Structure formats: C-alpha cells, structure tokens
Computed example of a mutant assay.
Amino acid sequence: MAKCVIDCRGLPCPQPVVKTKKAMEASPDGEIEVLLNDDIAFENVSRLAAGRQWAVVDVTRKGSDIHLLLRAENAAIGEPRPSSAAEQDATLVYCVSDRIGSGDDKLGELLMQSFIKSLLDMPPLPKRMIFLNSAVRLATEGSAVLETLQHLEKQGVEIFSCGTCLDFFGLKEQLRVGKATNMFDVITSLRTFERVVQP
C-alpha cells in the first residue's frame, strides 16, 4: 500500500485540512502521513478523516511535531456527494464587512482573508460574491485578497461591489475586480439564490 507524506507544519488554518483533503482524493486507497505541529490542526485533520471514513492508524509525537498516520477504510462511502452545477450556481457569498466577527480588528481581517483564499481550495465555487459596506475594500487596489478574487473571477465567479459604498469610501476609481452594483440587484440576488453564505 502506497504511503503519501505531507508536511503541514507551520501552515495556517485551514491549509492542513485542505492539503490532507487533496491527498485523500489523490490516494483514495492508500495511506497518508500528515506532519503537524499544532494541536488544533491535529483535531481538524482528525475530524476530516473521521468524516471521510479514513482511520487514524497511529499518532506519534516528537517534541512539538505530531505525526498522524491515516488509512482509507471505505473512502467511497465517506466521500461527500459532489455538488451539481445547479447547486454551485445557487450559492451566493454575501460580505458586509472586510473582517469576520467582532473583537480584535486585525484578527477579523486575517479571518476574512483566510475565508476568501480558502474558497479556491474548497469547491464548488460560489456563483456570485457581493460586497457591501467596508467589504468593498476587498475588491479595491491594495487589498490583501485582490489576486485571489481576480482568480475567482477568472474561474467564473461573479463579483459585485456596492456602488454607493464605493462612493462613500472614495474607492470607486480603485475598484480592481468585478463590477459595481446597486441595492436593487443586491435584493434581487438575495431573493433569487437558494443558498446565501455570510462570513
């Protein structure tokens, strides 16, 4: 049985889970040794394995390093059902801030950046993304996720930013991805899409 080794030490959340998921898909009948150095990442990867019918065969700790050995038991049953094109088209990501949650602003910004960058690694992609209020900053010059959003747009994701919000912040000329939209279109989207995700 072939064994794949992936080094996830030092990677920010959710990259250890994303890399492990990709390894599972590439080796559905093999073994995967995941190298970690964070207990939260260890718990997240273990939950991923359990949800996909992969057994945790061995856990070895060497200092701060954690070696997690996974083996496929019945991957076909554990594999989530692929989303259809219709389901993908029914997903709207609705962002009303350039950060997630309340509390520390810097942490909130990092969480939003992680959320948007993770969309590329966790298909299916949403059909549309709408940015309101301070979230319009994410689609403008200097945004930490501008390149990611541009790549999402190239993959077919529709990206819209509130025109009133861009004007309010003086950012209309700095919009670098997607198009400006209005409240009528925002309300129409919220009523039309079957699934709305608000980070």
Rank of each mutant, 00 (worst) to 15 (best):
T20V: 01
Q113W: 05
R47N: 14
V45F: 06
F115S: 04
D58W: 00
S64W: 08
S97G: 12
G10W: 02
S189D: 15
A85R: 07
R128V: 04
L190T: 09
I100T: 12
I130A: 04
F193Q: 03
N133I: 10
I116W: 00
E194M: 11
T192V: 08
S114Y: 00
P126E: 02
K127D: 12
V157A: 02
I159N: 05
E109R: 10
L146M: 08
T140I: 07
G178V: 04
V196R: 01
S97T: 13
C8G: 03
S161D: 07
F169R: 10
D89S: 11
L69N: 02
L175G: 02
F131K: 00
L35H: 07
R47K: 15
V136F: 07
L70T: 01
L68F: 11
R9A: 07
M1R: 09
I100W: 02
A90Q: 01
M24V: 03
D121I: 02
V177T: 06
G178T: 03
C165H: 03
D65G: 10
R128C: 03
G156M: 02
P123M: 05
E141P: 01
G170N: 04
E141A: 12
A2C: 09
A144T: 15
D105Q: 14
R61C: 13
G170A: 11
A26D: 13
V93Q: 04
F184T: 15
D89P: 03
I77N: 11
A180I: 04
G163N: 09
L48A: 03
G78V: 05
L107S: 13
L111I: 14
R191L: 13
S64Y: 14
L138T: 02
E25V: 10
L110V: 09
L132P: 01
S134T: 15
A55C: 10
Q15A: 05
